[in-house]
Design a protein around this nucleic acid. Sequence first.
DNA 1: CTCTGTGCAAAGCGTTTGCAAACGA
DNA 2: TCGTTTGCAAACGCTTTGCACAGAG
Lengths: 139, 139
Amino acid sequence: MQNYKEMLNKYNLKATPQRIYMIKEIEKKGHIDIDDLYEALKNIFPYISLATVYKNINSMTKNGFLIEVKIPKLKTRYELSKNSHAHLLCKKCGELTDIFIDKKWITNNASEESGYIIENTLVTFEGICPKCQKDNKFL
Amino acid sequence: MQNYKEMLNKYNLKATPQRIYMIKEIEKKGHIDIDDLYEALKNIFPYISLATVYKNINSMTKNGFLIEVKIPKLKTRYELSKNSHAHLLCKKCGELTDIFIDKKWITNNASEESGYIIENTLVTFEGICPKCQKDNKFL
DNA sequence: CTCTGTGCAAAGCGTTTGCAAACGA
DNA sequence: TCGTTTGCAAACGCTTTGCACAGAG
């Protein structure tokens, strides 16, 4: 909590209880969408407004404290910004997990070939997670 | 055009002039968002409805004829589904281009490490395109 | 001829905004 | 205390829906 407070202040954001709990929740879940976050927050702050969640998500996203994860056909989810990683999305159960991969090779290749200065490489793998593979043999 | 007609019929969609021109426009631009597509279509069909554009985008996306390209902080764009490729996005001018890269290595690695059966690998490189690099030396 | 697609208007939702009161620094 | 944040309600903008007519197969 003291920790979260410092993180927020570092980004010029006041450490309100709502924000601290938002970060806790995002950290706990890894990735979360607005509605799930709102539901989770209501358990702690019964009168919290959805507008507050939006405002905070926006202020934290604007300065890079949070990262938007947009995936075709799904709701946008948010995560704490952290070291470069990729996403694994299960098309069956919707689980989204992180995986650390080495992007240097593809990034350098793409940069050379295109002439772009590449600042960021986003990678998402879509497929079936081990659990869903077991649950349903017929894919 | 005869070509587009066949493509549509293959997907159980009737080949209306609006749809044929939508595909033409998407093919021409490579990637396009709803509003730009609507504007382009209005030149040909002055009375076309935005609802028609949405309905067609949805029916073509549902069956995989079109692909949704969702990128953090930007409007969703659509493209014709084609062979596996990656995207290059210029953060300055917003240009979105295709680049063909070999995703096998990262995909196999991620699959082994996670146990996922991976069906699709989405890659987006964000950076500065060559043109914007020239236009502005100070980044 | 039948069923799908189109255009229009209205409805639906997710997101943002304005404001007064509450709160953090 | 001062500037920021909160909660509420209203506004906004994008997307979808219902319906009658038009058009493709």
